[in-house]
Design a binder for these strands. Sequence first.
DNA 1: CAGTATCCGTATAGATACTG
DNA 2: CAGTATCTATACGGATACTG
Lengths: 138, 138
Amino acid sequence: MSASTVVNLRSVEPPLRDVDLSNLDFGNCPVRDLISQIGGKWSVLLLETLAKRPYRFGELRRMVPDISQRMLTQTLRDLQRDGYIAREVFPTKPPSVEYRMTDLGYSLYDPLAQLLNWAEANHEAVRAARAKFDQSPD
Amino acid sequence: MSASTVVNLRSVEPPLRDVDLSNLDFGNCPVRDLISQIGGKWSVLLLETLAKRPYRFGELRRMVPDISQRMLTQTLRDLQRDGYIAREVFPTKPPSVEYRMTDLGYSLYDPLAQLLNWAEANHEAVRAARAKFDQSPD
DNA sequence: CAGTATCCGTATAGATACTG
DNA sequence: CAGTATCTATACGGATACTG
């Protein structure tokens, strides 16, 4: 969890380099901070949508019909607060508001998309594992 | 978010094409499925730990002191159910149980680690954006 | 159009006590 | 040692109604 975290894929002899849980100090842990944000029910979906192009509030509502107005507002505000998306108000009559992804948002979306690809590619394996476990928990 | 979703990996330039929200069918959405699992408070932490080497239950408890016994058990079972980790019981006296990462778990950990690296590298930017927003919400 | 405000049910997680 | 069982607090998310 430290900055020196290395992806060690082969557990040969233990390099035993600590995951450094000593200063995992939640609330300050950037990883949990990120995960808990994108772990929200709608965050990833909105990031995916806005990665394509900017959208207005009402457009987003129509594109993600299952979301309630409340959750759309809240999720957008959270994403904006963290700097992933920007909100621009056009003083039209009636007012319109546009949301667009920021550079920071795009930089997040790059590794995030790789994770999403993994999910797409491997969800069958996961479902299989799950079915097997539910049948006979080892 | 459907099975036909194609996530474009271009790390450079024009971000992304279709997301295909038309038939996003939650409950079957592999992405939400994954995100909601690793979105749990302890999943990522345990995956990181077990990516290093196998650990026994008690060792995990000591390495992640904040976790309750209940949540440790539950999170480990969930991760096992999805096939990310394996559980092996040694009929010693008293019994000992070892948890280790599976191949599927390692394959997940690869893209996941990239996301974690992003979090480490950019959490200052996020914190800054957040502070600015809290001071004067645009 | 793009939000707020309010209410309420459910899911998630912690504390504590007990067990094969 | 490695868990279960129970109870409880809170966070998350949905529905509905109202507004600049």
